[in-house]
Design a protein around this nucleic acid. Sequence first.
DNA 1: TGCAGTGTTGCTTC
DNA 2: CGAAGCAACACTGC
Length: 290
Amino acid sequence: MPELPEVESTVRGLSPLIVGRKIIDVWSDAPKLIKNGTFEGLKKSITGKKILSVSRRAKNILIRLEGDDLLLIHLKMTGHLMVNKWNLPDKKEKPVPLGDGALTEKVNGYIHVIFILDDGRMLALSDLRKFAKVTFGKEQEVIRKEKIDKIGPEATDITLSELKDIFKDSKKGVKMVLLDQDRIAGIGNIYSDDILWKAKVHPLRPVNSLSDKEIKDIHQATRDILSLAISLGGTSISDYRDVSGERGGYGDRRLVYRRDGEPCKRCKTPIKRIKVGSRSARFCPECQKI
DNA sequence: TGCAGTGTTGCTTC
DNA sequence: CGAAGCAACACTGC
């Protein structure tokens, strides 16, 4: 799922459902997702603790608990968080959904961690590819270890001068820089493609060659696209769902992402795809000249 | 059938 | 230091 708008939608959906609740147990069939320490350690550390807040930094979900403890979840490629009720199996069977409709999709087959709450509901982490990451510990320790304090300004509120500063001293291609969480937080492949199309900038343009106007356009496009995507609840091109299982609305509105070969929405030229690093970038060869 | 491609990140290698 | 390649994993679509 996971770029800023999807993670933000998840956090907003999650807060009213789980803040104030106490975690009374944890279930997992994939302890490898717990990156620091063991499943038993996680269980011991968080059971009995009340959830104080849920927030987001870049694409990380931060769940603050009583006693200065922090539970950090990164959804990586295909993780989702959901709140519902499941019948928990003892051994290798999958959890069986007991709650309402939206979650009875295939996604239930990929639930790997479940936090059981004191009101009978549960918070589940589902992840087809098992790339997601769960970390826990004392707040400051987790923040330091996961380098949360090294992350750049949030893409939604970065200022124009901060962006100019970031672009100043690098010959890197602009797409690579937009994807670099230590410089700008929250942008991934979908939104970087759309931002650059909207700003009419080629993904491989070295950032130190961008004009003031181009930087201003990238800055504006970033704000516009991310706030639109947040207001639509993110993108569900593949399998992202919000915490109650609903799809996001940005997928239908996307500009160039995964539109290779389709006509550019401005000039009708077919959208092109190239490799940037080891990922795909889509752009209009006419509107976005190198 | 087989292989390239998929929203992320971080590690290794040069 | 930077850039590139790949690994973690499982599925879809050509």
